[in-house]
């Protein structure tokens, strides 16, 4: 089982602002309410953008992991 029971992984590596936020807003609807998706991104701006997006859309950033050159978010669809 993947971390945080993530049902899917969305790979946004290499995408620059605003595409990671645009893509997650389009693709969060593909999982069921309550499920968690793993999002991979290399955009440093996403570190502040994903929490801002979650705050405004009502979804939840369950966890954020950072390794050199890679940021991983676990996002829960809340509605």
């Amino acid at each position: 089982m993947a971390e945080h029971d993530a049902v899917k992984t969305y790979d946004y590596k290499g995408l620059a602002c605003p595409m990671p936020v645009v893509r997650i807003s389009q693709e969060i609807g593909k999982i069921a309410v309550g499920q968690v998706v793993e999002v991979l991104t290399t955009d440093p701006g996403a570190l502040s953008d994903f929490p801002a997006w979650a705050k405004n859309t009502g979804h939840e950033i369950v966890d954020t992991k950072q390794t050199p050159g890679l940021i991983t978010f676990f996002v829960r669809r809340k509605k």
Binding site: C17, P18, V21, V22, A52, W53, N56
Partner: peptide
């Protein structure tokens, strides 16, 4: 366009 798509993604 970046601001517009970003805002729409934020649910605006």
């Amino acid at each position: 366009m970046i601001i517009a798509t970003g805002a729409a993604a934020m649910g605006m």
